[in-house]
C-alpha cells in the first residue's frame, strides 16, 4: 500500500510539472492553432537561467530560500522574454501561411534553441543546487513525500488558481478568451490581437519556466536536451486533456504523470516513454478531442 501511495505521489508531482508546461501548449494552440514545438526549449532555458543565477548567487555568498526566489524570478523573466521573441521572429511573419509552415518553423526554432544553449553553455549535465530546503514539519511523512514534492504540488496548485483567476476575472483574460473564439471578430471589436497573442506566449513561457525551476531543483541536474522530451510529453498531456482547454491541460498532465509513474513502478521503467506515447496514440484514435475537449466541426 505504501508503495502505491509513493507511486501515486510521485505521479502527481510529475503530472503537475507536465501540467505547467502543457498549459503553454494549450493556450497557444487555443489561439493560433499552432503546436509551439519550441515550448519545451523555453522550459529548458528557464531551468538553465535559474541554474546560472543560482550558481552566481551561491558563489557570491547568498544562501537558502532567497537564492531560490531570485533564481525563479530570473527564470520567469527570461523565459517570458524568449517566448515573446520567439513568437515575434518565428511565428508572426507566418500568420496566414499554410498550416505546415509555422509548424516547421517551430521545429526549426526548437532545434536552434537547443543548439544555441549547447554552444553557449555545455553539452554536459550540470548539477543543479538543492534550493528547496527540507521542512521540519514534513519529517513524520518524509519517507512518503519529500519537501520538494510538496513545494512542487503547492506551487502548481497556486499557479493554476492564479491563472484561472486571470483568465476568468480580468479584462485581459476576457480578451484572450474572445481571441480564442474568433480572432477576426475580436479584432473588429477593438482587441489588439497581436498583443494578446504575445501575452499568451509570455504567460505560457512563464509557466514553463516555473516548471523548469521546480524540475531542475527536484531532479538536480540540467542539460540542453531536457526540453525536448518534456515538451513532447507535455504536449501529450495537453492533447490528452483536450487541446485548447485549460482544465484539460491540468487533468491531462496528471493522468499522464500517474500513468507513467504506475507503469514504471509496476511494469518496467525502461518502457516509461513507450507508455506515454502509447497513451497519446490511443487517445488520439479513440477520442481525438481529448478528455475535456469539444469536437470542433471543420467549417466548409
Amino acid at each position: 500500500m505504501e508503495y502505491f501511495i509513493e507511486l501515486f505521489l510521485s505521479g502527481l508531482t510529475r503530472g503537475s510539472i507536465y501540467a505547467l508546461i502543457a498549459l503553454g501548449y494549450t493556450m497557444v494552440y487555443g489561439i493560433i492553432q499552432l503546436i509551439n514545438f519550441a515550448h519545451g526549449e523555453i522550459y529548458m532555458i528557464g531551468a538553465f537561467v535559474a541554474l546560472i543565477v543560482a550558481g552566481v548567487c551561491t558563489i557570491y555568498g547568498f544562501a537558502g530560500v532567497s537564492v531560490l526566489i531570485i533564481a525563479a524570478i530570473a527564470a520567469v523573466i527570461y523565459a517570458s522574454a524568449y517566448g515573446y521573441t520567439l513568437e515575434k521572429i518565428a511565428y508572426r511573419p507566418l500568420r496566414g501561411a499554410p498550416r505546415l509552415s509555422p509548424l516547421i518553423s517551430a521545429i526549426g526554432m526548437s532545434i536552434f534553441l537547443q543548439n544555441y544553449v549547447l554552444l553557449a553553455q555545455t553539452s554536459d549535465f550540470l548539477p543543479f543546487p538543492r534550493l528547496i530546503p527540507d521542512f521540519e514539519f514534513m519529517e513524520p511523512v518524509a519517507h512518503i513525500i519529500g519537501s520538494p514534492e510538496l513545494v512542487i504540488l503547492v506551487t502548481t496548485v497556486v499557479t493554476m488558481i492564479l491563472l484561472t483567476l486571470l483568465i476568468k476575472k480580468t479584462k485581459v483574460g476576457k480578451a484572450m478568451r474572445a481571441t480564442q473564439q474568433d480572432m477576426s471578430m475580436a479584432r473588429l471589436v477593438g482587441i489588439n490581437v497581436d498583443r494578446i497573442i504575445s501575452l499568451t506566449f509570455v504567460i505560457g513561457s512563464a509557466l514553463a519556466a516555473i516548471g523548469g525551476v521546480l524540475v531542475a531543483s527536484y531532479i538536480g541536474q540540467v542539460n540542453f536536451y531536457i526540453g525536448f522530451l518534456a515538451g513532447v510529453k507535455a504536449f501529450t498531456a495537453a492533447v490528452l486533456g483536450g487541446i485548447g482547454s485549460i482544465p484539460g491541460a491540468v487533468l491531462g498532465g496528471l493522468v499522464l504523470g500517474l500513468t507513467e509513474s504506475f507503469a514504471a513502478g509496476y511494469v518496467s521503467s525502461d518502457y516509461e516513454d513507450v507508455f506515454a506515447f502509447g497513451l497519446l496514440v490511443l487517445i488520439l484514435i479513440l477520442r481525438p478531442a481529448g478528455i475535456l475537449g469539444k469536437a470542433r466541426k471543420q467549417k466548409v
Partner: peptide, 8 residues
C-alpha cells in the same frame, strides 16, 4: 544551429 535557423 544553422539547420534550425535555416528551417525558420
Amino acid at each position: 544551429l544553422a539547420f534550425g535557423a535555416a528551417m525558420v
